[in-house]
Design a protein around this nucleic acid. Sequence first.
DNA 1: AGTTGTCAAGCTAGT
DNA 2: ACTAGCTTGACAACT
Length: 292
Amino acid sequence: MKIGYPCINWMLKATPKKFRLASYSEQRLCESVEWNLYMLEKILSWNLERGFLFFRISSDIVPFASHKVNTFNWQEHFKKKFKEIGDFVRAHGIRISMHPNQFVLINALDEKILERSIAEIEYHCDVLDLMGLDESAKVQIHVGGVYGDKEKAIERFVERYGKLSSRARKRLVIENDDKLFSVSDCLKVSEKTGAPIVFDYFHHLCLNSGESVLDAMQACASTWTKSDGILMVDYSSQKEGFKRGTHIDSIDAEDFKRFLSLAEGIECDVMLEIKDKEKSAEKSLSLIRAFQ
DNA sequence: AGTTGTCAAGCTAGT
DNA sequence: ACTAGCTTGACAACT
């Protein structure tokens, strides 16, 4: 079981450098990407020293990567650096994921939204391909919107999925969300597309069809083939006193131990989606050691 | 130097 | 009709 956290390391003050569309320039873009790649290297070695072998790379690593304003061939320009980081990742058996944001909706009704979504997915694939990572490095998205008819929304997802590039289909995985598409909905999508399912533990507690965590998790695990690697799990828990679905600021030891016993025996890599990032990740490692 | 409004993109539920 | 929330800060313009 590899443990990781998403995108940011607070201790290293490693947050991706961004800028506004209005300030776009090639120089600004290059400066940002250069910094972001430098920080990514820092994070990955920091992680390795402490035993974190799972990491989610921020979608902001290349600002405006899929925006039409960006005509710069950043892929070519940063090829060497991406490859170098990818070599490090492979040499140490680090697992990588990426998670495009909520604007990526491949079941959108609007063609323009679909077009932008595909461009964004292609960008994420570019990053992982440039790093030279195999198919176990994934790009995770949610099924998307319901648009008043869940069955039709699923059908649209399946149809659109079939038209994606083959490299996108190799990387794309779907994740159950907390409001619209549960694990059982995702299973329907997975059956028809072959896309593996990332099991989101917290989302499953928010939205399910009555299945146990174990059953849901096993069902998700069975959607991953050998080349996909083992099941990816997103872990978080409820921030008490806030509305359902709000992520906790710091890991809840009891809840995490409960998760560990529920997940016992299922091979998986766990991403801790918790606000204080590496701090909770470090706590989780000591909880895991105590658990074993 | 410190504060604050706003940021590429969309959906849904809640006010 | 409008906003918070989502993977959520931090850029950039203003005191």
